[in-house]
């Protein structure tokens, strides 16, 4: 019984995996075939048509290199060690900015959610600042901080701050007052009330905030690294643009997609663990 259950779950997991990666796989396959027509077509197609196709795909491959070219570009950069160090430095910036902006946002969200005097004092100011697009701050940040690490970390931190602040605050405010009342009947106060009722009650909303923030984290970093950087993934792609290395640029873009997906998947895993009580996460 248990064994069969387990097997069905494993099967379901693989079915889900295959289905969710079908579309990217098909896209990559067509992309590859249209930029690099396989040699076997030379025997199947009339000679004139084959030559035509070949010249078209050669034209296309200059501006729009195929997956195999991009892979080769990536492999080359990997061998020289440039790629790994770029990923390292970009991830460091992202993580550091996320940590700073996220913890300030979380702390302020808690503070304003728990104490209404704090909300009255701070919330409208924060809402005002929220309406400034954080990327609009780039000129002033360059003027103040130059193009060094603090500028990029700060920009990421500002981008990450708002979704985490808003969702933490909202999560705390939307806890069922009936549950709070029940908890007070059962003698829960301050810390025990926070650990047993408020934090777990706000957790679904906080995790939504983290997912939003991770998206903004990469977005902000890409912009920051493209505008001013001397290292990182953004620097590699920007540099490659100057030398018309389309394959390297596309590799950088795909790398961002991959890293973004990785960040999102890790939050999903966190949701699975922290929100296992929700009916949606129960089999």
């Amino acid at each position: 019984m248990n064994n069969r259950d387990g097997r069905r779950r494993v099967k379901g997991f693989f079915a889900h995996l295959v289905l969710s990666w079908t579309v990217p796989a098909v896209v990559i396959l067509f992309w590859q075939l249209s930029t690099h027509p396989p040699a076997i077509l030379a025997k199947l197609l009339p000679h004139a048509l084959w030559l035509n196709l070949l010249s078209h795909s050669a034209n296309l491959a200059q501006t729009f290199p195929g997956p195999s070219q991009i892979f080769q570009a990536g492999a080359h950069l990997w061998k020289t060690g440039e790629l790994l160090s770029a990923i390292e430095i970009s991830s460091q910036r992202a993580a550091f900015g996320f940590l700073v902006g996220g913890s300030v946002g979380f702390a302020l969200g808690l503070f304003n959610g728990l104490f209404s005097f704090a909300e009255t004092m701070l919330d409208s100011s924060i809402q005002m600042l929220r309406n400034i697009p954080h990327l609009a701050l780039i000129p002033i940040i360059i003027l103040w901080f130059g193009i060094d690490e603090p500028a990029k970390v700060l920009l990421v931190a500002i981008g990450v701050f708002f979704p985490i602040y808003l969702n933490t605050f909202h999560g705390i405010r939307s806890i069922d007052p009936a549950l709070r009342e029940m908890a007070s009947v059962y003698g829960l106060k301050s810390w025990s009330l926070f650990w047993n009722v408020i934090l777990p009650g706000a957790m679904p909303s906080i995790l939504v905030g983290i997912r939003f923030a991770l998206g903004l984290m990469w977005l902000t970093l890409i912009v920051a690294e493209t505008i001013d950087a001397d290292s990182g993934i953004g620097y590699i792609t920007n540099n490659a643009r100057e030398f018309m290395q389309t394959d390297v640029v596309l590799m950088g873009i795909l790398l961002y997609a991959l890293l973004g997906k990785l960040a999102d998947a890790s939050v999903r895993l966190l949701e699975r663990i922290l929100l296992s009580w929700q009916p949606a996460y129960q089999r």
Binding site: A183, Y186, L188, N196, V197, P200, L275
Partner: peptide, 23 residues
């Protein structure tokens, strides 16, 4: 005093035993 309300008001993020032992 202990109060029982119209709805059970269990904490959905705690297992049954932890709900009973609350506080």
């Amino acid at each position: 005093a202990r109060v029982m309300f119209q709805d059970a008001r269990l904490l959905p993020w705690k297992k049954v035993l932890d709900n009973v032992g609350l506080g």
